[in-house]
């Protein structure tokens, strides 16, 4: 659609909606909502946020200002959000790492998970555990056996000390007894490069990074970390199916408001974002990035946060160094 038309269209729909059910709820009161995206513009997360914002603009009838505040793994944007008034007019889309890992890795963080009000969990990104196609173990069972037989001989790559891909593999190591050496990298691209040169023998990376290499046969996917199999790779078993019932790890994105935001405002925002996620254009676009679109209640999101805080907290108490 022509951008001008889209704007005019959105404005018209916005005008209609103000007179409709949104006004009846008392929120929003016609004032703009600032949606903080703690990542630079252009990436899949930013695009997801903007798609959802477009729908919210239509179903709430107010202007949604998407504000990119990148830096320090997303925590700068969240810091800015926590300083805003808890009136529902400032919210943020936050990554799992900023909520559940930075409390452990960033001693200077001026807020904790308790300063965030959960709104809705919108996206899950499964981690795909892969090995190079030429590697001698090509299934999860063989891999665990091989590594257990040769402790300390094989390497795995992660996105850095204290990153999700590091913690997730450390958790799996503690469950299986594998002795794999951790090699930190700067990001998924570097990890993939290292896998292709056989410098490292495995990694658990957000599905989008290894997917093209799995599809072309250069890497073999031996397990996926989400609770359910991925529709993109239906033949790849979950770690859970492979006998580790508790093991579920995903990278995720969720909306949060500042601490103290009233429940009725949170519910109104939850309803608006749920409606956005149910729009087929939005969910199909999000699926296209390899993300799993979903929605949740605020209470469910709160449980998810607690689950991971508990998980990573006990790994760190068990002696894992993260900073």
């Amino acid at each position: 659609m022509h951008p001008m038309l889209a704007t005019v269209g959105a404005a018209l729909i916005a005008g209609l909606a103000v007179a409709g059910p949104a006004a009846a709820q008392g929120f929003p009161d016609g004032q703009d909502i600032r949606l903080i995206v703690p990542f630079p513009p252009g990436g899949p997360t930013d695009t997801t946020a903007r798609l959802i914002a477009d729908q919210m603009r239509q179903n709430l009838g107010v202007t949604i200002i998407v504000d990119n505040v990148p830096g320090a793994g997303g925590t700068i944007g969240v810091t800015e959000m926590t300083l805003a008034d808890p009136d529902g007019h400032t919210i943020a889309i936050v990554g799992s790492g900023a909520v559940t890992l930075s409390p452990f890795t960033m001693p200077d963080l001026p807020w904790g998970p308790e300063n965030l009000t959960p709104i809705i969990h919108v996206v899950d990104i499964p981690l795909l555990m892969t090995v190079p196609a030429g590697f001698e173990a090509q299934t999860f069972g063989d891999f665990v056996n091989l590594v257990t037989a040769h402790p300390g001989d094989f390497n795995y790559g992660s996105d850095g000390q204290g990153s999700l891909t590091h913690m997730s593999m450390e958790w799996l190591k503690s469950l299986t007894g594998m002795d794999l050496v951790h090699i930190p990298y700067r990001g998924t691209a570097d990890i993939m490069q290292a896998m292709l040169s056989d410098t490292i023998q495995t990694s658990q990376s957000g599905i989008l990074g290894p997917l093209p290499l799995v599809q072309s046969g250069e890497l073999t996917a031996i397990a996926i970390t989400s609770a359910e199999r991925s529709p993109v790779l239906p033949d790849v078993p979950t770690v859970r199916e492979l006998g580790f019932d508790d093991f579920v790890v995903t990278a995720w994105f969720a909306f949060f408001a500042p601490e103290g935001t009233p429940a009725e405002i949170v519910d109104a925002l939850n309803a608006s974002i749920t409606a956005a996620m149910e729009n087929p254009d939005v969910s199909s676009a999000i699926s296209g990035f390899g993300f799993t679109p979903l929605n949740s209640t605020p209470a469910e999101l709160s449980q998810t946060v607690d689950f991971y805080l508990d998980r990573w907290g006990s790994l760190i108490e068990g002696g894992l160094q993260v900073n």
């Binding site: 899949p44 695009t47 993939m192 490069q193 292709l196 989008l208 093209p212 072309s216 676009a285």
Partner: peptide, 27 residues
Amino acid sequence: TLGIPGDAVMALMMAAMIIQGIVPGPG
């Protein structure tokens, strides 16, 4: 050819392709 972006600009390029439904990589 690999779907491995060498720098931030290339990572954005890849995102642009993915949004268009193209998965850059060996295929």
